[in-house]
Design a protein around this nucleic acid. Structure first.
Lengths: 337, 337
DNA sequence: TGACTAAATGCATTCGTATGCATTGTTGAC
DNA sequence: GTCAACAATGCATACGAATGCATTTAGTCA
């Protein structure tokens, strides 16, 4: 069913059908009503593919996520789609397979003529960034930023988050903290670590560094055991992400450790699960809502003008003080054993 | 950058450019190589929107999910996209807002000329099903089926799953089981309940029914407390879904109950989290992988011919016997107190 | 060598909609 | 009553690629 057929039935031109479906077009109310009635009757719906060819807008935004198993990305995807749908935009989802680079899949996304691309927790080469700029397809990195790269970015301030957590754990009199890394080259993990370590150092406190490997439950599980089984175990473990902390807590409890009595546990992300009673995890909560707003604004979907020059928005996270950490002050120690 | 421009640079026709990008087209190897080289140099990529207009294939599959916060849907989405991407298909995601019916959003999806639609945990009206059939857009319901509706469906056998769980809990000598429902009208929840209750009845065991309200952590949390605070509490609680069971377990533990000593807990879905040490939840595991395979096959993405008549595939789940349930045999009871 | 076949390429049209321009009809102001 | 301004509509074309058909070229066989 095409606009042509509807036009024939009504004895008008195809242009009139098209105008009836265009809010700003010049068409009489009566004609629009008639067209709509006939269209509904015949089951006509404009073909947005054909429309896109003319308007050069697809109303599709591509979102690239490294995986769907980490609840962190589920939250991000949720926040983004909830904002896009009211604007008449659809979400084209892309999950690179483990070995796949984002650079490889970007051409595919561009082929789809998407109106914008949001890339989470990954970066792109400068040549690919230029290719997108040339096509005027806006790209925003979410949860990653690369200084000097010609591209918009929105991220939680990971360095500041690391510092906040250090400050908090120092305030609770921890003297032997550990940090468990995520992926080695991930700036998110590295930034959290550097902020954390730097702030500890200011108080003359050393930090154990344990390689997690990747942001998974299992990685956290294994790392926690390695840390606690060494001769001089930490009194607090700060994991690069919540999901690793969950793994760590489960590993320790299964092996007889009491949290937070034997060791304090902290995470980073602030996923909803972190508030669940089983974990009750002290963490730095990402400003999910603000991050989604900022990402869409930089994509050009906001009301404000978009700065043409690449902009990086760093947003502060919020420390959630929960039950997985406790003060190591001498008084409390005596009470809790 | 269009095929026309590449053609001009090479001094050939636009048809030749198109043929170079079509595997089956008649074109010399030498010419294809030249075209590809020039295309790469100029940064030309075929516009799949324009292509779709001619080929009537978009290589886009729409997936409708009720939410992203339940890990169950994250797993489903993950399984589906991982199968679609190697086939050159993209995933167009749609998450209806709470009040929104799937019937309302289907027209939007059809406008995008998607090659197929997968609808999870919801159904469509028969008139809408007919509209899709008319357009020859295949539709598959996933995790829901409606007998008599002219539409393909793939679902875990919920009645059988309920029976399996009843059988298992009876085998563990539970005599006062309870079932916590999900959404009232959801067939998934009702079927699990009916299978569960029917099998219990065969052994003359009554079942408490507690209304959960919806498939959320909080609903499970509240329902568990209501159940255990009554004068004659159950010795086992079977929740309509894993996420509700997690809420239930957290609620009970926070209130001093020991699981499974005081009460056995079981769920349904078999999400990865159910295997985590904190919950170690006995559950019926959905055959996620088989379900995804079946859904894509019915969409016409498999190797086999698709039956033209609407087909319902019911796949059996697998009972995962874990630590959240324990035998109530007299001997054990004495040991564990 | 000539005719016949197959491969390679160009030409022209098509997919379904949007839109600039021309045309017609209507209204209002002087 | 006349003319301007504007609203409403039709006509024709464009968007970018795919493809049926016609044409050319090369290759094959008798």
């Amino acid at each position: 069913m095409t606009a042509d057929e509807v036009a024939r039935v009504l004895g008008v031109s195809q242009s009139t059908i098209s105008r009836a479906f265009t809010a700003t077009a010049s068409i009489s109310d009566e004609m629009r009503t008639r067209v709509m009635a006939t269209a509904a009757e015949l089951g006509y719906q404009p073909n947005v593919i054909a429309r896109s060819l003319m308007t050069r807008r697809t109303n599709i935004v591509a979102i690239v996520l490294p995986n769907l198993t980490d609840p962190f990305y589920a939250v991000i995807l949720d926040e983004l789609t909830q904002r896009l749908q009211p604007r008449g935009c659809q979400t084209l989802l892309f999950v690179p397979t483990p070995g796949q680079e984002v650079d490889e899949i970007l051409p595919t996304l561009l082929q789809y003529q998407v109106d914008g691309i949001i890339i989470t927790s990954a970066t792109v080469s400068s040549s690919m960034a230029r290719a997108c700029a040339k096509r005027e397809t806006p790209v925003v990195l979410l949860n990653r930023y690369v200084p000097g790269l010609e591209i918009h970015a929105v991220s939680c301030d990971n360095v500041a988050g690391g510092r906040q957590m250090a400050e908090f754990l120092l305030g609770q009199h921890h003297r032997r903290p550990a940090f468990v890394t995520g992926q080695l080259r991930a700036s998110t993990s590295m930034d959290r670590q550097s902020g954390f370590v730097a702030r500890l150092k200011e108080d003359g406190v050393e930090c154990l560094i344990e390689q997690g490997g990747d942001h998974t439950y299992q990685a956290g599980f294994d790392a926690a055991l390695r840390l606690m089984r060494q001769s001089n175990p930490p009194d607090a473990i700060f994991f690069a992400s919540d999901i690793m902390a969950f793994g760590g807590m489960d590993a320790l409890r299964r092996n007889g450790f009491i949290i937070p009595d034997h060791v304090s546990i902290a995470g980073f992300n602030g996923v909803p699960m972190a508030a669940w009673a089983s974990y009750d995890l002290t963490t730095i909560r990402h400003p999910f809502s603000q991050m989604a707003d900022a990402a869409l604004e930089l994509l050009g979907f906001g009301d404000a003008e978009v700065a043409s020059s690449p902009t990086t928005r760093l947003i502060h996270g919020e420390l959630m003080d929960r039950g997985s950490t406790m003060s190591r002050s001498p008084e409390l120690k005596r009470v809790r054993g």
